[in-house]
């Protein structure tokens, strides 16, 4: 059964491996599912002009972002035969190497979830007003832009 209520997608700080593990475990009772697919976005320690990114500080236009996440959710359920899907995105500071985006799609069959995850992640990158301040080790910063 697809849950289609508007949710708050944002979590403060990094998304822990415990949280991800628990999310997977919660699906053991949903036995029509035959395939899960997970995308994890991790903060990269990019080197720009000899300075290394130590963390990204995320902010968002939260009301609009949650509406956009909801619209992506609706469009995804319309397009793919999913049993359920979950999206979590960090707000605040996430250090290099930590997880900032967790997308989880489940379906009876594998081929659907492979396609669904790519669709969801690309839509998030393009449509959701989230902003990232890349903080370098020397505490200077620049603003990240999705390519």
């Amino acid at each position: 059964m697809a849950d289609k209520k508007t949710k708050n997608v944002f979590k403060k700080g990094a998304i822990s491996s415990d949280f991800i593990g628990t999310s997977i475990a919660k699906h053991q009772s949903k036995t029509t599912i035959g395939a899960h697919n997970i995308f994890l976005g991790q903060v990269r320690a990019d080197v720009i002009d000899n300075k290394t990114v130590a963390a990204i500080e995320y902010t968002a236009y939260e009301d609009m972002a949650n509406e956009k996440f909801h619209a992506i959710r609706e469009a995804t359920f319309k397009k793919f035969d999913l049993t359920c899907m979950h999206i979590y995105h960090s707000l605040g500071t996430v250090k290099a190497g930590e997880i900032c985006l967790f997308v989880f799609a489940s379906s009876p069959k594998r081929k659907i979830v492979f396609k669904a995850i790519e669709y969801i992640v690309e839509a998030i990158k393009a449509d959701v007003p989230v902003f990232g301040k890349e903080i370098f080790e020397d505490e200077t910063h620049q603003w990240k832009v999705n390519k």
């Binding site: 236009y61 995105h89 992640v121 989230v130």
Partner: peptide, 10 residues
Amino acid sequence: LALLPPFAGG
């Protein structure tokens, strides 16, 4: 109204 710089989610 909101002024939104380039998105950087994910």
